[in-house]
């Protein structure tokens, strides 16, 4: 080994991040260390801030530094339509596409008997309370087209039938086995615009 344990520890931490491998982690560490004033220190500061202030929104499950999150508290957003997504990454992807003007519900996963993620683990309480309060007109199920995503959509639909809300699903364009997070903005926007109302 030709670098100190501290630097190796930094590289090892970076390498565990999604999208990083050992090689890119090494490159990133080098870039940070070479320019401590303009790269490393501002990053440390940004990370510390994020670590100190970010929380999971108690209403929708989004990640943000304010509670409830910036989306839940935005008066300009349509409170009567909730878009259900699997992960915060999916929420961000939809926001990037900029087509959904309502609220979100982040499930935190999809039903998966094989990995032990069941109905009780789905984060839906915030949405159910909003529906019970009579604020919601439509729920859009924006789940990936994986097997577990489809099963979760079916399960949610059964839960919502009684609630008297319109339930819709992303339209065509989502490839089978596809996750929202990796789709391009245009495809996402088209899928959301072409959403289909599900018959009870």
């Amino acid at each position: 080994m030709w670098s100190s344990p501290e630097i190796e520890a930094l590289i090892a931490r970076l390498a565990r991040l999604p999208g990083f491998g050992p090689r890119s982690a090494r490159r990133a560490a080098l870039a940070l260390l070479q320019e401590p004033e303009t790269r490393l220190k501002p990053l440390v500061e940004a990370m510390q801030n994020a670590a100190r202030h970010s929380h999971t929104c108690p209403q929708c499950g989004n990640l943000d530094t304010q509670m409830p999150c910036i989306i839940c508290t935005d008066p300009a957003r349509d409170q009567s339509i909730i878009c259900v997504v699997e992960t915060v990454g999916d929420l961000w992807a939809l926001e990037r596409a900029g087509v959904h003007k309502g609220l979100y519900q982040v499930l935190g996963g999809t039903l998966s008997a094989l990995s032990g993620f069941g109905p009780d683990d789905l984060n839906i309480r915030g949405m159910m309370e909003r529906i019970a309060a009579g604020h919601v007109h439509e729920v859009v199920l924006a789940l990936g087209t994986t097997v577990d995503g489809a099963t979760t959509a079916h399960w949610l639909q059964s839960q919502l039938v009684e609630a008297g809300v319109v339930i819709s699903r992303l339209g065509q364009g989502v490839p089978m086995g596809g996750a929202l997070e990796v789709m391009d903005d245009g495809t996402l926007a088209a899928a959301l615009t072409a959403r289909r109302i599900l018959e009870p």
Partner: peptide, 8 residues
């Protein structure tokens, strides 16, 4: 978990 079973 009947509803879950139905979905699967």
């Amino acid at each position: 978990q009947k509803t879950w079973l139905s979905s699967v």
